[in-house]
Design a protein around this nucleic acid. Structure first.
Lengths: 237, 237
DNA sequence: CGTCCGATTGATGCGGGTCAAATTGGGTGG
DNA sequence: CCACCCAATTTGACCCGCATCAATCGGACG
Protein backbone atom coordinates (compact mmCIF):
# COMPACT_ATOMS: atom_id res chain seq x y z
CA UNK A 1 0.00 0.00 0.00
CA UNK A 2 2.98 2.32 -0.02
CA UNK A 3 2.94 4.76 -2.85
CA UNK A 4 4.82 7.74 -3.96
CA UNK A 5 3.38 10.95 -2.65
CA UNK A 6 2.17 13.36 -5.26
CA UNK A 7 -0.25 15.94 -4.06
CA UNK A 8 -0.79 18.20 -7.02
CA UNK A 9 -3.88 18.53 -9.14
CA UNK A 10 -5.91 15.75 -7.63
CA UNK A 11 -9.58 15.20 -6.87
CA UNK A 12 -11.12 17.25 -4.16
CA UNK A 13 -12.34 16.04 -0.81
CA UNK A 14 -14.68 17.03 1.93
CA UNK A 15 -14.39 15.43 5.27
CA UNK A 16 -17.86 15.82 6.43
CA UNK A 17 -20.16 18.35 5.11
CA UNK A 18 -19.60 21.79 4.11
CA UNK A 19 -18.36 22.35 0.66
CA UNK A 20 -14.74 23.16 1.03
CA UNK A 21 -12.59 21.17 -1.31
CA UNK A 22 -9.24 19.58 -0.75
CA UNK A 23 -6.79 17.52 -2.66
CA UNK A 24 -5.82 14.38 -0.88
CA UNK A 25 -4.42 12.22 -3.58
CA UNK A 26 -5.99 9.01 -2.42
CA UNK A 27 -6.28 7.98 -6.02
CA UNK A 28 -2.69 8.39 -7.02
CA UNK A 29 -1.76 6.79 -3.78
CA UNK A 30 -2.95 3.54 -5.14
CA UNK A 31 -0.88 3.88 -8.28
CA UNK A 32 -3.62 5.57 -10.24
CA UNK A 33 -5.99 2.65 -9.90
CA UNK A 34 -9.15 3.94 -8.20
CA UNK A 35 -9.61 2.24 -4.87
CA UNK A 36 -13.06 1.97 -3.38
CA UNK A 37 -16.20 0.42 -4.79
CA UNK A 38 -18.75 2.35 -6.80
CA UNK A 39 -22.43 2.56 -5.94
CA UNK A 40 -25.43 4.70 -6.80
CA UNK A 41 -28.37 6.18 -4.92
CA UNK A 42 -31.55 7.55 -6.45
CA UNK A 43 -32.86 10.93 -5.32
CA UNK A 44 -34.33 10.66 -1.85
CA UNK A 45 -32.60 7.40 -0.96
CA UNK A 46 -30.74 7.06 2.31
CA UNK A 47 -27.07 6.10 2.34
CA UNK A 48 -26.79 5.73 6.09
CA UNK A 49 -28.66 6.94 9.15
CA UNK A 50 -27.83 8.56 12.45
CA UNK A 51 -26.86 5.74 14.79
CA UNK A 52 -25.63 3.34 12.12
CA UNK A 53 -22.20 1.85 12.50
CA UNK A 54 -19.64 3.94 10.64
CA UNK A 55 -17.31 1.73 8.69
CA UNK A 56 -16.55 3.67 5.54
CA UNK A 57 -15.81 7.04 4.01
CA UNK A 58 -17.50 8.14 0.79
CA UNK A 59 -16.58 10.27 -2.17
CA UNK A 60 -19.34 11.81 -4.24
CA UNK A 61 -18.77 11.07 -7.92
CA UNK A 62 -21.97 12.61 -9.23
CA UNK A 63 -24.97 14.33 -7.67
CA UNK A 64 -25.53 15.96 -4.28
CA UNK A 65 -26.29 14.62 -0.82
CA UNK A 66 -27.69 16.20 2.30
CA UNK A 67 -26.33 15.39 5.76
CA UNK A 68 -28.67 16.05 8.64
CA UNK A 69 -29.50 15.53 12.28
CA UNK A 70 -33.00 15.23 13.67
CA UNK A 71 -34.70 15.88 16.98
CA UNK A 72 -37.07 13.19 18.26
CA UNK A 73 -40.11 15.24 17.24
CA UNK A 74 -38.99 15.50 13.64
CA UNK A 75 -37.33 18.89 13.53
CA UNK A 76 -34.39 18.62 11.17
CA UNK A 77 -31.13 20.48 10.82
CA UNK A 78 -29.14 19.94 7.65
CA UNK A 79 -25.50 20.27 8.60
CA UNK A 80 -24.20 20.25 5.06
CA UNK A 81 -24.59 19.46 1.41
CA UNK A 82 -21.94 17.39 -0.34
CA UNK A 83 -21.52 17.42 -4.08
CA UNK A 84 -19.27 15.86 -6.69
CA UNK A 85 -15.57 15.48 -5.95
CA UNK A 86 -16.08 15.88 -2.22
CA UNK A 87 -15.89 13.32 0.55
CA UNK A 88 -17.73 12.82 3.81
CA UNK A 89 -18.38 10.27 6.50
CA UNK A 90 -15.12 10.16 8.40
CA UNK A 91 -16.00 9.55 12.03
CA UNK A 92 -13.55 7.82 14.28
CA UNK A 93 -15.99 6.61 16.86
CA UNK A 94 -18.10 3.88 15.47
CA UNK A 95 -21.49 5.56 15.19
CA UNK A 96 -22.88 7.94 12.57
CA UNK A 97 -23.80 11.30 14.05
CA UNK A 98 -25.99 12.23 11.11
CA UNK A 99 -28.01 10.80 8.24
CA UNK A 100 -26.87 10.97 4.61
CA UNK A 101 -29.48 11.09 1.85
CA UNK A 102 -29.31 11.69 -1.88
CA UNK A 103 -30.74 15.06 -2.94
CA UNK A 104 -30.44 14.13 -6.60
CA UNK A 105 -29.40 10.86 -8.21
CA UNK A 106 -25.87 10.22 -7.05
CA UNK A 107 -22.89 8.02 -7.71
CA UNK A 108 -20.54 7.32 -4.83
CA UNK A 109 -17.25 5.65 -4.15
CA UNK A 110 -16.95 3.82 -0.87
CA UNK A 111 -13.70 3.50 1.08
CA UNK A 112 -13.77 1.11 4.04
CA UNK A 113 -12.29 2.65 7.15
CA UNK A 114 -9.74 -0.10 7.50
CA UNK A 115 -8.03 0.76 4.25
CA UNK A 116 -8.19 4.43 5.11
CA UNK A 117 -6.58 3.86 8.47
CA UNK A 118 -3.80 1.90 6.85
CA UNK A 119 -3.09 4.80 4.55
CA UNK A 120 -2.94 7.16 7.48
CA UNK A 121 -0.33 5.09 9.21
CA UNK A 122 1.72 4.15 6.19
CA UNK A 123 1.58 7.21 4.01
CA UNK A 124 3.55 10.07 5.47
CA UNK A 125 1.74 13.33 4.91
CA UNK A 126 -1.61 11.74 4.32
CA UNK A 127 -2.71 12.20 7.89
CA UNK A 128 -1.69 15.81 7.83
CA UNK A 129 -3.70 16.34 4.69
CA UNK A 130 -6.71 14.81 6.36
CA UNK A 131 -6.11 17.02 9.32
CA UNK A 132 -6.13 20.09 7.14
CA UNK A 133 -9.39 18.97 5.63
CA UNK A 134 -10.89 18.39 9.05
CA UNK A 135 -9.78 21.82 10.21
CA UNK A 136 -11.30 23.46 7.17
CA UNK A 137 -14.53 21.61 7.79
CA UNK A 138 -14.46 22.80 11.34
CA UNK A 139 -13.99 26.34 10.12
CA UNK A 140 -16.96 26.01 7.81
CA UNK A 141 -19.06 24.59 10.64
CA UNK A 142 -18.12 27.56 12.80
CA UNK A 143 -19.09 29.90 10.01
CA UNK A 144 -22.45 28.18 9.86
CA UNK A 145 -22.84 28.64 13.62
CA UNK A 146 -22.46 32.38 13.11
CA UNK A 147 -25.10 32.24 10.39
CA UNK A 148 -27.55 30.15 12.41
CA UNK A 149 -27.09 31.99 15.66
CA UNK A 150 -26.81 35.60 14.61
CA UNK A 151 -28.04 36.27 11.09
CA UNK A 152 -31.46 37.42 9.87
CA UNK A 153 -33.42 35.47 7.26
CA UNK A 154 -32.28 37.86 4.55
CA UNK A 155 -28.64 37.56 5.54
CA UNK A 156 -28.91 33.78 5.69
CA UNK A 157 -30.42 33.45 2.24
CA UNK A 158 -28.04 35.94 0.65
CA UNK A 159 -25.05 34.18 2.23
CA UNK A 160 -26.33 30.83 1.08
CA UNK A 161 -26.66 31.93 -2.52
CA UNK A 162 -23.18 33.45 -2.50
CA UNK A 163 -21.64 30.31 -1.02
CA UNK A 164 -23.42 28.16 -3.60
CA UNK A 165 -22.18 30.43 -6.35
CA UNK A 166 -18.63 30.43 -5.09
CA UNK A 167 -18.61 26.69 -4.67
CA UNK A 168 -19.76 26.03 -8.21
CA UNK A 169 -18.19 29.18 -9.34
CA UNK A 170 -16.49 29.59 -12.52
CA UNK A 171 -15.48 32.83 -10.89
CA UNK A 172 -18.44 35.15 -11.27
CA UNK A 173 -20.89 32.88 -13.02
CA UNK A 174 -24.30 34.52 -13.29
CA UNK A 175 -26.35 31.36 -13.06
CA UNK A 176 -26.29 29.15 -9.99
CA UNK A 177 -27.67 25.63 -9.87
CA UNK A 178 -29.74 24.89 -6.75
CA UNK A 179 -30.21 21.14 -6.70
CA UNK A 180 -31.89 21.06 -3.29
CA UNK A 181 -35.51 22.02 -2.71
CA UNK A 182 -36.83 24.84 -0.54
CA UNK A 183 -37.36 22.41 2.29
CA UNK A 184 -33.69 21.49 2.33
CA UNK A 185 -32.61 25.11 2.12
CA UNK A 186 -34.90 25.97 5.02
CA UNK A 187 -33.56 23.15 7.18
CA UNK A 188 -30.02 24.18 6.34
CA UNK A 189 -30.53 27.84 7.25
CA UNK A 190 -32.70 27.29 10.30
CA UNK A 191 -35.81 28.78 8.64
CA UNK A 192 -39.13 27.57 7.23
CA UNK A 193 -39.81 26.98 3.55
CA UNK A 194 -42.20 29.91 3.52
CA UNK A 195 -39.58 32.30 4.80
CA UNK A 196 -37.04 31.02 2.29
CA UNK A 197 -39.54 31.44 -0.52
CA UNK A 198 -40.60 34.91 0.59
CA UNK A 199 -37.00 36.02 0.96
CA UNK A 200 -36.08 34.79 -2.50
CA UNK A 201 -39.15 36.59 -3.85
CA UNK A 202 -38.04 39.81 -2.21
CA UNK A 203 -34.62 39.48 -3.77
CA UNK A 204 -36.22 38.84 -7.12
CA UNK A 205 -38.54 41.83 -6.79
CA UNK A 206 -35.54 43.98 -5.92
CA UNK A 207 -33.83 42.64 -9.07
CA UNK A 208 -30.82 41.30 -7.19
CA UNK A 209 -31.53 37.83 -8.50
CA UNK A 210 -33.63 36.09 -11.12
CA UNK A 211 -35.55 32.85 -10.62
CA UNK A 212 -35.92 31.28 -14.08
CA UNK A 213 -36.75 27.98 -12.36
CA UNK A 214 -36.99 26.86 -8.73
CA UNK A 215 -33.68 25.03 -9.08
CA UNK A 216 -31.86 27.91 -10.70
CA UNK A 217 -30.86 31.32 -9.42
CA UNK A 218 -29.45 34.01 -11.61
CA UNK A 219 -27.30 36.48 -9.73
CA UNK A 220 -27.97 39.91 -11.16
CA UNK A 221 -26.29 42.17 -8.65
CA UNK A 222 -23.58 40.36 -6.79
CA UNK A 223 -22.36 43.48 -5.06
CA UNK A 224 -25.67 44.34 -3.44
CA UNK A 225 -26.16 40.70 -2.57
CA UNK A 226 -22.86 40.72 -0.76
CA UNK A 227 -23.94 43.81 1.15
CA UNK A 228 -27.12 42.04 2.19
CA UNK A 229 -25.24 38.98 3.33
CA UNK A 230 -23.79 41.13 6.06
CA UNK A 231 -26.19 44.01 6.50
CA UNK A 232 -29.51 42.22 6.31
CA UNK A 233 -32.57 43.65 4.67
CA UNK A 234 -31.32 47.22 4.72
CA UNK A 235 -31.96 48.55 1.26
CA UNK A 236 -34.34 45.99 -0.15
CA UNK A 237 -37.99 46.72 -0.74
CA UNK B 1 11.91 14.20 18.97
CA UNK B 2 10.99 10.54 18.69
CA UNK B 3 9.34 9.16 21.75
CA UNK B 4 7.67 6.05 22.83
CA UNK B 5 3.95 6.09 22.28
CA UNK B 6 1.89 5.78 25.41
CA UNK B 7 -1.66 6.95 25.10
CA UNK B 8 -3.28 6.08 28.38
CA UNK B 9 -4.35 8.43 31.13
CA UNK B 10 -2.97 11.62 29.72
CA UNK B 11 -4.08 15.25 29.70
CA UNK B 12 -7.11 16.09 27.69
CA UNK B 13 -7.23 18.15 24.54
CA UNK B 14 -9.62 20.18 22.53
CA UNK B 15 -8.78 21.06 19.01
CA UNK B 16 -10.82 24.11 18.61
CA UNK B 17 -13.73 24.84 20.70
CA UNK B 18 -16.34 22.66 22.05
CA UNK B 19 -15.58 20.90 25.21
CA UNK B 20 -14.87 17.36 24.22
CA UNK B 21 -11.72 16.08 25.77
CA UNK B 22 -9.07 13.88 24.31
CA UNK B 23 -5.84 12.37 25.38
CA UNK B 24 -3.05 13.10 23.02
CA UNK B 25 -0.02 12.44 25.07
CA UNK B 26 1.95 15.39 23.82
CA UNK B 27 3.50 15.63 27.23
CA UNK B 28 4.77 12.11 27.51
CA UNK B 29 5.86 12.38 23.94
CA UNK B 30 8.57 14.71 25.03
CA UNK B 31 9.79 12.35 27.70
CA UNK B 32 7.61 13.89 30.38
CA UNK B 33 9.23 17.28 30.06
CA UNK B 34 6.47 19.77 29.28
CA UNK B 35 7.13 21.37 25.94
CA UNK B 36 5.67 24.74 25.17
CA UNK B 37 6.02 28.02 27.01
CA UNK B 38 3.71 29.14 29.78
CA UNK B 39 1.81 32.42 29.78
CA UNK B 40 -1.13 33.97 31.58
CA UNK B 41 -4.08 36.15 30.61
CA UNK B 42 -6.28 38.11 32.97
CA UNK B 43 -10.07 37.90 32.65
CA UNK B 44 -11.20 39.80 29.58
CA UNK B 45 -7.81 39.86 27.90
CA UNK B 46 -7.46 38.82 24.28
CA UNK B 47 -5.10 36.02 23.31
CA UNK B 48 -5.50 36.45 19.58
CA UNK B 49 -8.04 37.97 17.19
CA UNK B 50 -9.83 36.96 14.05
CA UNK B 51 -7.48 37.69 11.18
CA UNK B 52 -4.25 37.33 13.17
CA UNK B 53 -1.60 35.02 11.84
CA UNK B 54 -1.97 31.56 13.35
CA UNK B 55 1.38 30.24 14.42
CA UNK B 56 0.70 28.27 17.56
CA UNK B 57 -1.62 25.90 19.35
CA UNK B 58 -2.57 26.45 22.99
CA UNK B 59 -3.40 24.30 25.94
CA UNK B 60 -5.44 25.74 28.77
CA UNK B 61 -3.74 25.06 32.09
CA UNK B 62 -6.13 27.02 34.27
CA UNK B 63 -9.25 29.09 33.65
CA UNK B 64 -11.67 29.30 30.73
CA UNK B 65 -11.58 31.05 27.36
CA UNK B 66 -14.25 32.01 24.89
CA UNK B 67 -13.74 31.65 21.14
CA UNK B 68 -15.95 33.82 18.98
CA UNK B 69 -16.64 35.28 15.57
CA UNK B 70 -18.17 38.68 14.96
CA UNK B 71 -20.17 40.36 12.24
CA UNK B 72 -19.08 43.84 11.16
CA UNK B 73 -21.93 45.46 13.12
CA UNK B 74 -20.88 43.84 16.37
CA UNK B 75 -23.16 40.83 16.56
CA UNK B 76 -21.17 38.04 18.15
CA UNK B 77 -21.37 34.26 18.03
CA UNK B 78 -19.35 32.32 20.56
CA UNK B 79 -18.33 29.10 18.88
CA UNK B 80 -17.01 27.48 22.00
CA UNK B 81 -15.63 27.66 25.51
CA UNK B 82 -12.32 26.03 26.32
CA UNK B 83 -11.34 25.13 29.85
CA UNK B 84 -8.44 23.53 31.66
CA UNK B 85 -6.72 20.52 30.09
CA UNK B 86 -8.13 21.31 26.66
CA UNK B 87 -6.44 22.65 23.58
CA UNK B 88 -7.46 24.96 20.78
CA UNK B 89 -6.10 27.04 17.97
CA UNK B 90 -5.08 24.46 15.42
CA UNK B 91 -5.72 26.01 12.05
CA UNK B 92 -3.68 24.92 9.09
CA UNK B 93 -4.21 27.98 6.95
CA UNK B 94 -2.36 30.90 8.32
CA UNK B 95 -5.16 33.08 9.61
CA UNK B 96 -7.27 32.89 12.76
CA UNK B 97 -10.94 32.39 12.01
CA UNK B 98 -12.02 33.49 15.47
CA UNK B 99 -10.96 35.53 18.47
CA UNK B 100 -9.83 33.96 21.75
CA UNK B 101 -10.40 35.83 25.03
CA UNK B 102 -10.02 34.90 28.65
CA UNK B 103 -13.33 34.48 30.47
CA UNK B 104 -11.59 34.14 33.81
CA UNK B 105 -7.91 34.49 34.67
CA UNK B 106 -6.12 31.82 32.70
CA UNK B 107 -2.80 30.10 32.34
CA UNK B 108 -1.85 28.74 28.94
CA UNK B 109 0.84 26.69 27.35
CA UNK B 110 1.84 27.71 23.87
CA UNK B 111 3.03 25.24 21.22
CA UNK B 112 4.44 26.74 18.05
CA UNK B 113 3.02 25.18 14.96
CA UNK B 114 6.41 24.18 13.66
CA UNK B 115 7.07 21.85 16.56
CA UNK B 116 3.58 20.48 16.31
CA UNK B 117 4.00 19.74 12.64
CA UNK B 118 7.23 17.94 13.32
CA UNK B 119 5.48 15.70 15.82
CA UNK B 120 2.80 14.89 13.30
CA UNK B 121 5.34 13.73 10.78
CA UNK B 122 7.67 11.96 13.13
CA UNK B 123 5.39 10.41 15.68
CA UNK B 124 3.36 7.57 14.24
CA UNK B 125 -0.15 7.64 15.60
CA UNK B 126 0.00 11.24 16.71
CA UNK B 127 -1.62 12.48 13.53
CA UNK B 128 -4.38 9.96 13.86
CA UNK B 129 -5.02 11.09 17.40
CA UNK B 130 -5.26 14.65 16.22
CA UNK B 131 -7.62 13.54 13.51
CA UNK B 132 -9.87 11.88 16.04
CA UNK B 133 -9.89 15.06 18.06
CA UNK B 134 -10.74 17.10 14.99
CA UNK B 135 -13.56 14.76 14.09
CA UNK B 136 -14.98 14.95 17.58
CA UNK B 137 -14.82 18.72 17.43
CA UNK B 138 -16.61 18.60 14.15
CA UNK B 139 -19.28 16.42 15.69
CA UNK B 140 -19.71 18.88 18.54
CA UNK B 141 -19.94 21.76 16.08
CA UNK B 142 -22.66 19.92 14.20
CA UNK B 143 -24.51 19.31 17.42
CA UNK B 144 -24.36 23.03 18.08
CA UNK B 145 -25.76 23.69 14.60
CA UNK B 146 -28.79 21.60 15.53
CA UNK B 147 -29.14 23.61 18.71
CA UNK B 148 -28.76 26.99 17.03
CA UNK B 149 -30.95 26.21 14.05
CA UNK B 150 -33.77 24.20 15.50
CA UNK B 151 -34.09 24.49 19.27
CA UNK B 152 -36.23 26.81 21.38
CA UNK B 153 -34.73 29.04 24.06
CA UNK B 154 -35.76 26.56 26.75
CA UNK B 155 -34.19 23.65 24.93
CA UNK B 156 -31.02 25.62 24.31
CA UNK B 157 -30.58 26.60 27.94
CA UNK B 158 -31.44 23.15 29.29
CA UNK B 159 -29.01 21.54 26.84
CA UNK B 160 -26.32 24.01 27.77
CA UNK B 161 -26.64 23.29 31.48
CA UNK B 162 -26.51 19.56 30.89
CA UNK B 163 -23.44 19.82 28.68
CA UNK B 164 -21.71 22.01 31.27
CA UNK B 165 -22.58 19.50 33.97
CA UNK B 166 -21.38 16.54 31.95
CA UNK B 167 -18.16 18.28 31.03
CA UNK B 168 -17.28 19.08 34.61
CA UNK B 169 -19.16 16.13 35.78
CA UNK B 170 -18.06 14.03 38.53
CA UNK B 171 -20.88 11.88 37.17
CA UNK B 172 -24.06 13.38 38.52
CA UNK B 173 -22.70 16.31 40.42
CA UNK B 174 -25.49 18.54 41.68
CA UNK B 175 -23.65 21.80 41.50
CA UNK B 176 -22.33 23.18 38.24
CA UNK B 177 -19.84 26.00 37.93
CA UNK B 178 -20.76 28.58 35.29
CA UNK B 179 -17.65 30.71 34.82
CA UNK B 180 -19.03 32.70 31.88
CA UNK B 181 -21.51 35.54 32.29
CA UNK B 182 -25.04 35.73 30.86
CA UNK B 183 -23.74 37.70 27.91
CA UNK B 184 -21.41 34.88 26.92
CA UNK B 185 -24.11 32.28 27.38
CA UNK B 186 -26.47 34.30 25.21
CA UNK B 187 -23.90 34.71 22.44
CA UNK B 188 -23.16 31.01 22.59
CA UNK B 189 -26.79 29.94 22.35
CA UNK B 190 -27.92 32.52 19.82
CA UNK B 191 -30.13 34.36 22.34
CA UNK B 192 -30.12 37.64 24.27
CA UNK B 193 -29.06 37.98 27.88
CA UNK B 194 -32.64 38.79 28.84
CA UNK B 195 -33.93 35.57 27.35
CA UNK B 196 -31.20 33.54 29.03
CA UNK B 197 -31.98 35.15 32.36
CA UNK B 198 -35.73 34.68 31.99
CA UNK B 199 -35.30 31.06 30.99
CA UNK B 200 -33.06 30.32 33.95
CA UNK B 201 -35.62 32.02 36.18
CA UNK B 202 -38.38 29.81 34.79
CA UNK B 203 -36.30 26.72 35.50
CA UNK B 204 -35.67 27.97 39.01
CA UNK B 205 -39.36 28.71 39.61
CA UNK B 206 -40.17 25.20 38.38
CA UNK B 207 -37.59 23.86 40.85
CA UNK B 208 -35.56 22.07 38.19
CA UNK B 209 -32.50 24.10 39.15
CA UNK B 210 -31.27 26.36 41.90
CA UNK B 211 -29.32 29.59 41.42
CA UNK B 212 -27.34 30.14 44.62
CA UNK B 213 -25.15 32.58 42.68
CA UNK B 214 -25.06 33.82 39.08
CA UNK B 215 -22.00 31.68 38.43
CA UNK B 216 -23.41 28.55 39.97
CA UNK B 217 -26.30 26.31 39.00
CA UNK B 218 -27.60 23.53 41.17
CA UNK B 219 -29.29 20.79 39.21
CA UNK B 220 -32.27 19.64 41.20
CA UNK B 221 -34.13 17.48 38.72
CA UNK B 222 -31.80 16.17 36.07
CA UNK B 223 -34.44 13.94 34.56
CA UNK B 224 -36.92 16.70 33.86
CA UNK B 225 -34.11 18.92 32.64
CA UNK B 226 -33.18 16.23 30.14
CA UNK B 227 -36.77 16.05 28.96
CA UNK B 228 -36.77 19.81 28.44
CA UNK B 229 -33.54 19.70 26.50
CA UNK B 230 -35.44 17.84 23.83
CA UNK B 231 -39.07 18.71 24.33
CA UNK B 232 -38.82 22.40 25.00
CA UNK B 233 -41.00 24.22 27.46
CA UNK B 234 -43.64 21.49 27.64
CA UNK B 235 -44.24 20.96 31.31
CA UNK B 236 -42.69 24.05 32.83
CA UNK B 237 -44.76 26.85 34.28
C1' DC C 1 -56.76 18.09 -19.98
C1' DG C 2 -56.49 16.64 -15.21
C1' DT C 3 -53.58 15.32 -11.30
C1' DC C 4 -50.02 16.11 -8.18
C1' DC C 5 -46.44 18.07 -5.67
C1' DG C 6 -43.40 21.71 -4.74
C1' DA C 7 -43.37 26.66 -4.57
C1' DT C 8 -45.50 30.96 -3.76
C1' DT C 9 -48.46 34.19 -1.50
C1' DG C 10 -51.60 35.77 2.13
C1' DA C 11 -53.42 36.35 7.02
C1' DT C 12 -52.52 35.90 11.66
C1' DG C 13 -50.04 34.68 16.03
C1' DC C 14 -46.27 34.07 19.11
C1' DG C 15 -41.45 33.41 20.82
C1' DG C 16 -38.00 35.94 21.69
C1' DG C 17 -35.93 40.66 20.81
C1' DT C 18 -35.82 45.52 22.35
C1' DC C 19 -36.08 49.12 25.47
C1' DA C 20 -36.34 50.37 30.14
C1' DA C 21 -36.26 49.98 35.06
C1' DA C 22 -35.38 47.61 39.40
C1' DT C 23 -32.59 44.39 42.07
C1' DT C 24 -28.63 41.89 43.61
C1' DG C 25 -24.26 41.13 45.29
C1' DG C 26 -19.27 41.56 45.26
C1' DG C 27 -15.66 44.86 46.03
C1' DT C 28 -13.96 49.07 48.25
C1' DG C 29 -13.18 52.51 51.49
C1' DG C 30 -14.52 54.68 55.72
C1' DC D 1 -18.42 45.98 60.33
C1' DC D 2 -21.04 48.78 57.51
C1' DA D 3 -22.34 51.84 53.72
C1' DC D 4 -21.77 52.70 49.21
C1' DC D 5 -20.84 51.80 44.34
C1' DC D 6 -21.04 49.70 40.21
C1' DA D 7 -21.67 46.17 37.05
C1' DA D 8 -24.16 42.21 36.17
C1' DT D 9 -28.47 40.17 36.50
C1' DT D 10 -33.29 40.08 36.75
C1' DT D 11 -37.85 41.63 35.70
C1' DG D 12 -41.37 44.21 33.12
C1' DA D 13 -43.81 46.21 28.96
C1' DC D 14 -44.10 46.20 24.34
C1' DC D 15 -42.95 45.05 19.56
C1' DC D 16 -41.38 42.62 15.43
C1' DG D 17 -39.50 38.98 12.49
C1' DC D 18 -40.40 34.80 11.50
C1' DA D 19 -43.50 30.70 12.22
C1' DT D 20 -47.90 28.89 11.50
C1' DC D 21 -52.02 27.96 9.11
C1' DA D 22 -54.23 28.24 4.82
C1' DA D 23 -55.08 28.96 -0.03
C1' DT D 24 -53.50 29.28 -4.68
C1' DC D 25 -50.23 28.77 -8.32
C1' DG D 26 -47.48 26.43 -11.78
C1' DG D 27 -44.96 23.16 -14.19
C1' DA D 28 -44.15 18.04 -15.05
C1' DC D 29 -46.25 14.00 -16.32
C1' DG D 30 -49.76 10.71 -17.73
Amino acid sequence: MYVQASYDSMPKMDLAAVGLSHDLGYRKMNNSAPMGTLQTKAAGETLFSEGDEADAVYEVVRGTLRLYKMLPDGRRQIIGFVSAANMFGLSPEGVRAYTAEAVSDTALRRFPHAAFDRLIDEQPGFARRLLNVASDELGAAQEQMLLLGRMTAMEKVASFLLVLAKRQGRDNARSVDVPMGRNDIADYLGLTIETVSRTLSRLKRARLIGLPAPTRVEIRDRHRLEMLAVNGAAGVA
